[in-house]
Computed example of a mutant assay.
Amino acid sequence: MTSNLFARVWKHRNGTFDGFTKTYGCDRLVWFERHVWVTEAIQREKRLKKWRRDWKLKLIEDANPGWDDLAADWYPVNDPDWRPPVED
């Protein structure tokens, strides 16, 4: 759960987070959900963590069958003045 998905994806892509994503080279955003309330997002995240792997894969593949990177065009390429957003 994050309040700034743009910044979180950038940090994962650049290896600033230790843990699962860095260890296994996860660098594509293939699925996400938006929630109005933080409490809803946290509750949903906790439920998803208890799901079986095949259910999680189906959730992703129903929304994004090609496993396309949903953030592929979020960041300018070769822009020397670009800086990542600051997370609140």
Rank of each mutant, 00 (worst) to 15 (best):
R28G: 00
D81C: 03
N78R: 14
W82R: 01
W82C: 03
K22M: 07
N64H: 05
P65E: 00
F6W: 11
L5T: 02
L5S: 00
K49W: 11
L59F: 05
P65F: 02
T21V: 02
R28N: 05
P84A: 15
A41L: 06
K58A: 14
F32D: 00
K49S: 13
K56I: 14
E45P: 03
T39G: 04
V86W: 07
D88I: 10
L59K: 10
K49C: 12
D54T: 14
G19N: 04
W31G: 01
V38Q: 13
E40R: 11
K56Q: 09
T21R: 01
D79P: 08
W10I: 05
A7K: 06
C26P: 00
W55N: 14
H12T: 00
G66I: 05
E33S: 04
K56T: 11
W67Y: 14
H12C: 01
R8E: 10
W55A: 12
K49F: 14
P65W: 03
D79C: 10
P76N: 13
F17N: 11
T2D: 04
W31L: 15
V9N: 02
W31I: 12
F6C: 11
D79N: 15
D88Q: 11
R53T: 05
A72F: 05
D81Q: 12
R47Q: 15
E61W: 08
K50R: 06
T23A: 13
F32A: 04
K49E: 11
H12G: 00
P76A: 14
F20R: 03
L5C: 02
N64S: 06
D18K: 10
R34K: 04
N14R: 12
R28T: 07
K56G: 07
T21H: 07
R13T: 06
D54Q: 12
W10Y: 12
L70D: 04
C26F: 08
K58S: 09
T2N: 01
L59N: 04
R47S: 15
E61M: 12
F20W: 06
L29W: 03
I42V: 13
R47Y: 09
L70S: 05
L57G: 07
R13F: 05
N64R: 11
T2C: 07
E87C: 15
M1C: 08
F20S: 03
L70V: 04
R13N: 02
G25E: 04
D54I: 10
S3T: 11
T2M: 10
G19Q: 05
P65I: 04
F17P: 01
E87P: 01
W31K: 06
H12M: 02
W51H: 01
F32E: 03
E40G: 09
D54V: 11
G19R: 11
F6R: 14
R53A: 07
P76V: 12
S3C: 08
P85E: 14
L70I: 07
R28C: 05
D54N: 13
A71D: 03
R52G: 03
D54A: 13
T2H: 07
R28I: 03
R83N: 11
F32P: 00
A63P: 02
T16I: 08
E87L: 12
V38I: 08
D18N: 08
P84R: 11
E40I: 02
P65K: 03
R13Q: 06
E45W: 09
D18H: 10
H12Q: 03
A71Y: 11
D62T: 07
K49D: 09
P85C: 15
A63V: 07
A63I: 02
